[in-house]
Amino acid sequence: MNSLSSFLLLLLLPALTVVGLSTTGAAITTITTVGVTYATPASAAGSSPISPDRIAAKVTSMRIPAVRILDSDPALIRSFAYTNVSLLLSVPNPLVPLLATNRSLAMRWVYRHVLPFHPRSRISMISVGDDIISYSPDISQFLLRAMQNVYQSLRDLSIYKVSVSTTFSFFNTISTTSAPSTARFQQPNGDFIISPVLQFLEMTNSSFLINIYPYNFYRSNFEIPIGFALFQEHPFLFRDDLTTGVRYRNIFDIMIDSVISAMAVMGHENLPVIVAETGWPCTGTDAREVDATVLYAEMYLKGLIKHLRSGNGTPLRKEGVAEAYIFELVGREQQGTRNWGILDQNMTQKYRFEFSNGCKTSRFRTYLIGLLLVVVVLRLLM
Rank of each mutant, 00 (worst) to 15 (best):
L295V: 08
E289N: 06
M255P: 11
V294H: 15
K302Y: 07
E298P: 06
I254K: 02
L304A: 07
G303V: 09
T293F: 03
S258Y: 02
K306S: 10
K306Q: 11
D241C: 09
A287P: 01
G303I: 02
R309Y: 14
F252L: 07
S310T: 10
W280Q: 01
M255E: 13
A287T: 15
E289A: 11
G267Q: 00
I251V: 15
G284F: 04
L301S: 08
E298F: 09
N312M: 10
H268R: 11
I260G: 02
K302F: 05
R249P: 00
I254G: 05
H307P: 11
N312R: 15
R247S: 04
N312I: 05
V265P: 04
V259A: 12
V275K: 14
I256Q: 05
S310D: 08
K302N: 13
A262L: 07
E277K: 05
T278E: 12
L295S: 02
L308I: 06
R247C: 05
L308Q: 10
D253Q: 03
W280L: 10
C282W: 15
P272C: 05
H268K: 15
L242S: 14
V294A: 15
G279V: 11
S258F: 00
R288Q: 12
G279I: 07
L308E: 12
L295R: 02
G311K: 02
R247W: 05
D257Q: 08
Y248T: 03
Y248S: 03
V259F: 10
G313S: 02
G284W: 04
D286E: 09
V294E: 14
L308D: 13
G279N: 13
T293G: 00
P272T: 09
L308C: 10
E289H: 10
V275H: 13
A264Y: 04
L301W: 03
D257N: 05
L271W: 08
R309N: 15
D286V: 04
G313D: 07
M266Y: 09
Y296P: 00
I274H: 09
M255V: 09
I305H: 09
E298C: 11
R288D: 13
I251Q: 05
H307C: 08
N250Q: 01
L304S: 05
E289Y: 06
H268S: 10
